[in-house]
Design a protein around this nucleic acid. Structure first.
Length: 441
RNA sequence: UCCCCGGUAGCUCAAUGGUGGAGCAUUCGGCUGUUAACCGAAGGGUUGCUAGUUCGAAUCUAGCCCGGGGAGCCA
């Protein structure tokens, strides 16, 4: 592509174009769609920042008209024209096109596959690399970026240092879920991390308050709208922190992320038709109930739950529907939580754990709690969970050398963003979703 | 791994066991304010695969393949 900077008109983005009404600008992008009406063409351009309608009249711009007429969807173009206020145009502005440079013309023999109409999920996921060009998908990805930025800002402001846990790990962090095994160098086996949890504990003992924010992998055969095999998790961990500290941090983090998106991505939220009012209500403190009370709520709702049962998706939905904000459920039975979870000294059958359940049935977005600090108890738990002790020697070192109370949690980015966006499925909120039976494109 | 639903034109979907259709997309024609524009015409099919029942199967049966949703498990 040739450099077009020699054009006398300023190159601008569609997002910025409205501010230059009355002026002439150049936009570099793609032809999103085109409507024709006799001797008038209404091309709609997109450039990644938005879409803008153009107008070309045969009478006034015969050369541009001829070049544009019949140009297939998604052909790349550099267009020049005058920006003007136009109530009839979507967005309120339109571009009176006076110049057109076609960078690449999509061949007529193989037209762009994605139309401006509904498609099936399978079709779209097979063409995810093109699907992300549609305004809705682009808006969701911008909201994701805002959520990530806001999350980092909040953690940094709370005095947490961002660190990074390894992707290759020698063994499971938690014995329960399935791991992706990879061939490491010279016949060694390694696994893709399912959580940075253990490593972030070591980093907390080194740096005090830390968090990681990166991809994690779970080879679970889960086929639901809430699951991905590769997803991003933000995992804070703080030395000398207790359960209550983490619940408050989680409330602050989630509300800060939601408020930032509501404030800074209003255009995108409007485009995907998400009710901002529901988001503005997300301010701390969030409702909290104990696991004990959660069981009672379920029983009152006519659900045959009994103490000791795990809370599945249906149960979470029943509880979350009682509130219009995320709800914190804390102190689950020790038996149903990971081996490293600390127990409640007042009631040893309970763990100092908590989950945060998003409203509207989006499920668990946070899981965490206080960690076991005692060496002997931790060794007992490793054995009880049938975990290979030799792989955890470095982790046990954290209890040998200056063990302290410490706590943390994991926040699932995609579930959080899916809830904020109100998307049907979690796969829409990550650029290239990795799911059961789907690793293409 | 288990349970439920689906697979028909490029896409979204119709079609009582009796000649496989529509809208959109594509190509051609028309239209000076369109809003997934509209109007007219044309091309486009091994009905997921295999076997079976039947005079006759997109339709009924069995097996397999692929996809979706859910359970379990989890963020």
């Amino acid at each position: 592509m040739t450099e077009t900077a020699q054009t006398p008109n300023p190159i601008t983005t569609i997002e910025q174009a409205g501010a230059q009404a009355g002026g002439t600008v150049t936009i570099r992008g793609w032809l999103y769609n085109m409507r024709e009406s006799g001797k008038l063409l209404f091309p709609i351009f997109r450039d990644g920042t938005g879409t803008m309608q153009g107008v070309v009249s045969l009478k006034e711009q015969p050369e541009v008209f001829a070049a544009l007429k019949g140009l297939p969807q998604e052909s790349s173009v550099v267009v020049t024209g005058s920006v003007r206020t136009e109530p009839r145009a979507p967005g309120g502005f339109e571009l009176g096109v006076t110049g057109l440079e076609i960078i690449q013309r999509v061949p007529d023999s193989a037209p762009y596959p994605i139309q401006l109409k509904e498609h099936g999920v399978d079709f779209l996921l097979d063409r995810r690399h093109l699907w992300i060009r549609t305004p809705r998908q682009a808006a969701i990805l911008r909201i994701r970026a805002e959520a990530q930025r806001a999350a980092r800002n909040y953690m940094d402001a709370q005095g947490y240092t961002q660190t990074d846990a390894p992707i290759f790990t020698p063994a499971a962090c938690e014995g329960t879920t399935t791991l992706f095994e990879v061939n490491y160098i010279d016949d060694q086996k390694a696994y893709l991390t399912q959580s940075g949890q253990l490593y972030v504990e070591a980093l907390a003992a080194a740096l005090g308050k830390v968090y990681t924010f990166g991809p994690t992998f779970r080879a679970e055969k889960s086929k639901t709208r809430r699951h991905l095999t590769e997803f991003w998790m933000l995992e804070p961990e703080a030395a000398y922190a207790h359960l209550e500290d983490m619940i408050q941090l989680a409330e602050g983090l989630v509300s800060s992320v939601v408020q930032s998106v509501a404030k800074n991505r209003t255009r995108e939220l409007a485009l995907i038709e998400r009710d901002v009012k529901a988001l503005e209500k997300i301010v701390p403190p969030f409702p909290r109930i104990t696991y004990d009370d959660a069981i009672k709520v379920l029983q009152k709702a006519g659900h045959p739950a009994k103490w000791g049962d795990d809370l599945g998706g249906d149960e979470e939905t029943i509880i979350s529907k009682e509130f219009d904000r995320p709800v914190v459920i804390h102190r689950y039975p020790t038996a149903m939580k990971a081996f490293y979870m600390a127990t409640d000294p007042a009631r040893p059958e309970l763990s100092l754990s908590f989950d945060m359940i998003a409203p509207e049935g989006y499920g668990e977005i946070i899981g965490g709690g206080e960690r076991l600090a005692d060496y002997d108890t931790l060794v007992e738990r490793l054995r009880a969970h049938n975990l290979p002790e030799e792989s955890f020697q470095w982790y046990l070192d954290l209890r040998r050398f200056g063990s302290v109370p410490h706590s943390g949690f994991g926040l699932g980015l995609e579930r959080t963003v899916a809830w904020i966006c109100g998307t049907e499925h979690i796969r829409e909120v990550i650029p290239f979703p990795r799911m059961l039976y789907r690793v293409y494109p």
